[in-house]
């Protein structure tokens, strides 16, 4: 008999070593997330996947599943908190969806739509962030970076390079590039690197590809992120 946890009362099997989010995904239960991606080392920074495990808050992407866990996921309180977290991500950067090539395919947007976020609630920072369009095939718009660390992990773990790092703390936190000039053109990044493809927002973009799919026909224009995520990530498992 396999061991089980419960999520919102539903019994879910898990294998030893699986995190809560891995067990949930395998069983077709969506837990909202942005910094988590199957096959990548967990980072536990975006906190969207926060669930209630036997009365305590834990990140589902880092917390191991264990027998006896009664987990709450889709409660009003947790969903309200997740919406607030998403609103904070929106006001911390400069996320102007109408002018972003990634709109409709952006996971930050997808999560916000899923959480029925209509406004940003908080005062905006309107932070002064840079744009690095130095590379012939790629660009980085730091306005849209949410510090999920996925490009950092992808470059190290998948591409065998070390192009990105997160530097600084709090409001001064920023994505830095490992090159003599600090510019993308002088790094060893290439278009097909996982680090480019993995970006959940429009922060790292491939040039000349932005409008190959018209707005209105993009992923989250028609499908909710829970369905998209479960289809993609269950296949991966």
């Amino acid at each position: 008999m396999s061991e089980t946890i419960t999520i919102d009362g539903k019994e879910i099997p898990f294998k030893a070593g699986q995190t809560i989010i891995e067990a949930a995904t395998a069983a077709g239960v969506y837990i909202p997330h942005l910094c988590h991606k199957p096959g990548y080392k967990p980072h536990g920074s975006c906190k969207l996947c926060t669930v209630n495990v036997n009365g305590r808050r834990c990140s589902a992407c880092t917390f191991p599943a264990a027998t006896g866990q009664a987990i709450l996921n889709k409660t009003q309180e947790l969903e309200d908190n997740r919406r607030k977290i998403t609103q904070m991500l929106f006001v911390e950067g400069n996320h102007f969806c109408p002018s972003c090539e990634k709109t409709g395919n952006c996971q930050l947007q997808g999560v916000a739509y899923y959480l029925a976020m209509k406004d940003n609630h908080f005062p905006h920072f309107f932070a002064n962030r840079e744009l690095d369009a130095s590379h012939p095939d790629l660009l980085i718009d730091h306005n849209r970076c949410i510090f999920c660390n996925l490009c950092v992990r992808a470059s190290q773990e998948k591409d065998g390079k070390n192009v990105f790092a997160i530097s600084g703390r709090g409001i001064n936190k920023r994505l830095i590039i490992n090159s003599k000039t600090g510019l993308l053109k002088d790094s060893d990044i290439e278009v097909n690197d996982c680090a480019v493809q993995v970006c959940p927002t429009g922060a790292i973009l491939e040039k000349r590809k932005g409008y190959s799919t018209p707005i209105g026909q993009r992923i989250y224009d028609t499908q909710q992120i829970d369905q998209v995520s479960l289809t993609q990530e269950t296949v991966y498992e």
Binding site: F90, N94, F96, P98, N120, F126, N128
Partner: peptide, 18 residues
């Protein structure tokens, strides 16, 4: 009622903010 992106987050005009 706030109608549209600009009333909600400043929108494209707010791209002058920095």
């Amino acid at each position: 009622v706030a109608v549209g992106a600009c009333s909600i987050n400043g929108g494209l005009p707010a791209m002058r903010n920095h």
